[in-house]
Design a binder for these strands. Sequence first.
DNA 1: TCGATGGGTGTGACCGGTCACACTTCCTGC
DNA 2: GCAGGAAGTGTGACCGGTCACACCCATCGA
Lengths: 332, 332
Amino acid sequence: MPSIRDVAAAAGVSYQTVSRVLNGSPKVRTETREQVLDVMNRMGYRPNRAARTLGRGRARAVTVVTANTTLYGYAATLQGIEESARDQELAVGIRVIDSVRDAEVRRAVDDVSDPSGGGVIVVAFDAEGVAVLRALPAGVPAVAAIEPDVLPVSRTTICLDERLAAADATRHLLGLGHRTVHHIAIPSESGTRGREAGWRQALAGAGVEIPEVVPAGWDAPSAYAAGRRLAGDPSVTAILCGNDDTALAVRRALYDAGRRVPEDVSVIGFDDVPGAAYWTPALTTVRMDFVALGRACVTALVGELDGVPVRDVSLAAPELVLRESTAPPPIL
Amino acid sequence: MPSIRDVAAAAGVSYQTVSRVLNGSPKVRTETREQVLDVMNRMGYRPNRAARTLGRGRARAVTVVTANTTLYGYAATLQGIEESARDQELAVGIRVIDSVRDAEVRRAVDDVSDPSGGGVIVVAFDAEGVAVLRALPAGVPAVAAIEPDVLPVSRTTICLDERLAAADATRHLLGLGHRTVHHIAIPSESGTRGREAGWRQALAGAGVEIPEVVPAGWDAPSAYAAGRRLAGDPSVTAILCGNDDTALAVRRALYDAGRRVPEDVSVIGFDDVPGAAYWTPALTTVRMDFVALGRACVTALVGELDGVPVRDVSLAAPELVLRESTAPPPIL
DNA sequence: TCGATGGGTGTGACCGGTCACACTTCCTGC
DNA sequence: GCAGGAAGTGTGACCGGTCACACCCATCGA
């Protein structure tokens, strides 16, 4: 593998000049530049990123720490990060952390706090992410995508504030005539995830009974089980689901219990996954712009790396999207 | 930031001894090792990955080149790669290539063919991936996840052979009494993607008319449009969809056209996305183990890097999963 | 007693870039 | 005529590890 020294020798210039060409420095005569570029091509020269990073002291890179890469919210956030990082010519790495066990968290933190490793974006939608965020040494440049209301950390954090939308969704159901709204929750760091907080607040504001939250996991079977539980109670006529995947399984559970959506029971989801508009019935849900969240994280991180911390990144608030899965409750 | 030299000085040993401790060399007295480890902790020492990579000449890392990170097949493959890479202590990077334009392909290839960059896994389910695979210099260690039947490249390639399952699915519909089976295709490199090939072959084998393939994109609207087109033709009673996302939109299109699934039209998908079992009706589909595919890619790549090329990675064949979206055609 | 063996440790060069700085040449202005 | 600057280029040290090798000292068998 040829190095800049080899290229320099072959082109009859110094290695520093080759380095300048590599970095697009304006202080190289056009003629010289072309000469060097030509030799590079001929020799099949490829710059060595590790050497460049070592010399510079910092990599142009971002590592994403996340508990998951396939669930919609995580995947879409990652997509936003990747797109934005690519625009800024940052390399992107991924480190999945799928346990809150201390040893696992420590290993993830070690992997990621490389002094030459660029910046870190922690997707802290869950306990794993928050644990990593807490354990990350102060010297590591990092920003975090979090849920609203997570205990403050001394870092730049960005969130999609879904509380208002959750409250809107709840009020929408109440406005349709439902006596109350039930909630099936997905796993969360804070007991009072933003979604749940908005729901609770809207019910309280309407002076309506607040039913017990039904917990579910990320998996369809647990969401289905939660749905069956509520489906068995004839007084339940409206369900706010923790996310769209949950809503899918819940809708099936209702179907299996002989309850129609939306005629007998109204269902609202969260996220607006691609395809939610094509369900039968099309799903009323809260649109979350995770891609924008991801992009904002990169913007903030770049600020962090350049020593110009970007506080207060404002993101458009998530909005309720009305479709077909909600209706007035059945007349008794 | 302390370096091994600083640690060595503080511990009263040579930097080489520190390096040995770092690499778990057995040729260090236990006492010395603990002493060094202790100093490292106290000083907050963090190894510099770039320096290590430069010294060694190669990184313990894998970069995934893919056209997408959120669509199910891609995301699940990525998940498999990540899990396996983590097991093997390889860092994982991502480079998305979302255009077949020559300049874009070249940039992706440049980004990825770092002489110190470890290995590359190309997810070549589509034209973008295949273009990168073709443009990758021979010196870069790489393996590819591909569709069956893609023109051979001189590299290790791994695929999920879906042709048999596609043929099974088609024959299943024929066996139910359908006169023929229509196919809505997703974007593909080869005009005859594995799925389409299996379908075509089964129809030919049964001596049945082979309808024209209806093309669709990755997006729901285009799949919906394709579905509407077929829904308008009363002679179509069975549709094999390019993937489950397509099937979702097609099912909706049929619904909007007043055609029931499966009573009027049978629908089969591809992939078995999480949740397909919870649709109403639950989707009959072909289960694709993309996670295993991803893991196999890492195994093969590690072989490649160690100079022990792993040929012939065998993966369990995808299987048809019967659920509720297929039935005999309506009696005319 | 000596040489061979091997565990434990240190030295110098090197990986392939970058940085800071020095140098040359040519142009400009007084 | 010469100071002063700018454009273009080269030199040496350095980033933080690794590698190959030399070295020391204890133990052991002949």
